[in-house]
Design a protein around this nucleic acid. Sequence first.
RNA 1: CGGGGCGUAGCGCAGCCAGGUAGCGCACCUGCCUUGGGAGCAGGGGGUCGGCCGUUCAAAUCGGCUCGCCCCGACCA
Length: 574
Amino acid sequence: MDPCPIVRLSRLLAPTLREDPADAEVMSHKLLVRAGMIRQVARGIYDFLPLGLRAVRRVEAIVREEMDRAGAQEILMPAVIPAELWKESGRWDHYGRELLRMQDRYDRDFCFGPTHEEVVTDLVRREIRSYRELPKTLYQIQVKFRDEVRPRFGLMRGREFIMKDAYSFHADRADAEREYRVMHETYTRIFERCGLRFRAVEAGTGAIGGSLSHEFQVLAQSGEDAIVACDRCGYAANVEKAEVGPVPAPQGRARPVERVATPGKRTVEEVAAFLGVPPERFVKTLIYQGGEGQAVAVLVRGDHEVSETKVAALLGGGPIELADDATVERVTGAPVGFAGPVGLRVRIVADASVRGLRDAVTGANQEDQHLVGVDQERDFPDVEFADLRQARAGDACARCGGGVYAGHRGIEVGQVFYLGTKYSAAMGAGFLGADGVERPLEMGCYGIGITRTVAAAIEQHHDDAGICWPAPLAPFGAHVVPVNANDATLAEAADRVAAELARAGIDVLLDDRDERPGVKFKDADLIGLPVRVTVGPRGLKAGKVEVKPRTATAAEEVPLAEAAARVAALVGPR
RNA sequence: CGGGGCGUAGCGCAGCCAGGUAGCGCACCUGCCUUGGGAGCAGGGGGUCGGCCGUUCAAAUCGGCUCGCCCCGACCA
């Protein structure tokens, strides 16, 4: 067995910073920069320094092992892709400005691949003829570029990032769904091995249709996605997509409608405070515009939020957006903030929780006026009901009926997707079946954001002093610190401990710098390797070193000869 | 893409309103001293003040343009 490397910190490019960088917002960004792991080159584009790159490589290694174990085959496709392939799929015109386009010296169009359905489908259509050659699952680990409107949060949302993308090809839908389940299990193994707390949540499939997509969300307070998970059946989904269970029947008593003045009060919060009526007795009316520009009124209870995903699906799947001020005025006859369903002459869709509401407050479609005592069945009966609101913690689970949703925040690090024949049909990727009939290939695709996973690991595993790497992702297994580099006895002992650790299969970062102990300890905490081994004069006199897991509060004294075994037990196989 | 903010030494910042010798802390170099949680003393190096144009006797400071970066809203691994 090759001995693991021992890297001397004095020679490593690991410029640690004492202060947070001014341009960083989230912890993973601050800590990656402070620990000398990344540096920004342009917005959303980073250098990976040795420590950062080692963490990336560790995620990649886990992903590779598990993909290979699942029978997928690693390939490498080009990052620069000729426009023709993207024109074939139609995405050259539809992908938008996120696609980084360029020309070569002959003015031919190319793009930097943000994803590789076109390239892989082109490869497979040229090389696969028969059902006998199926199924095939191909993957690559590669740099991607998406010219995000708003890159931010360091590695969480870069423009250039490393992604594992996989594509599978099948003779029929059943086999594609079988592979989907295999990949779902593979992803579960991958993120478990990474030492991350995560949930696989149901995800929308947008324009492609079908129901087969899951996002893998690493749970962290700083996550951009809000998700809910049932405490009983385990159903979990993005709040935008999560089905909402039965709503309690409305309580209010019938009374006549009354118009009240609410000068300058536009939001539910403002009006609720002004009238002394709780938000759940409000009907919130939002005017949306679909792709063709027709306005639709969407109603939810005052304490609920609209799920644009659900509204878009109800209206046919196209993109929707909140109407601009002028449209709102035209539709409601009042400025933004005073819309209500009573007397509206556009299509009205409402969340199920609005059905049967009595004694509710709504906008009056007149400036500075609201209606109270509104009765849905009496005053605006002409409404379509559907599940249109975002789920939230405390809602009843729609799947099992008995459970209750708990709220989480998540960072999406992976997604698995059943594609069907979207790309194979568009690009003429077919095969001959046993019956001699040519059919389009059934496909699935499966992505993992490698660099985002590194950031997510830090978001989930850090403390005030720095990163606390899950051992499987740590750049090194152990951090060996001789407290005084000028003490030859200590330095020799540290070298010896490092060598034994390496022999025991642990990669070692040895802080051989001529720095004071405090500086070394601060840097060790910041870099966050799973175990620190301190070699100091006190312990060494008794033939001992200190072994301290990063997340432990106290160190443990261990005889020199046993240190390697002790650390190996703590860190696990590397 | 719309809205807001910031560009002054490697990092974090002051100076700008009220134009007149470019500063502070950390980091860096040299020496002394120190060595179990970001020591101390002394000396030192380093900045076309993002860029361009203008106003002025004089611009980091005032005006215009431009580039870069960050934050807030709709998409995505």
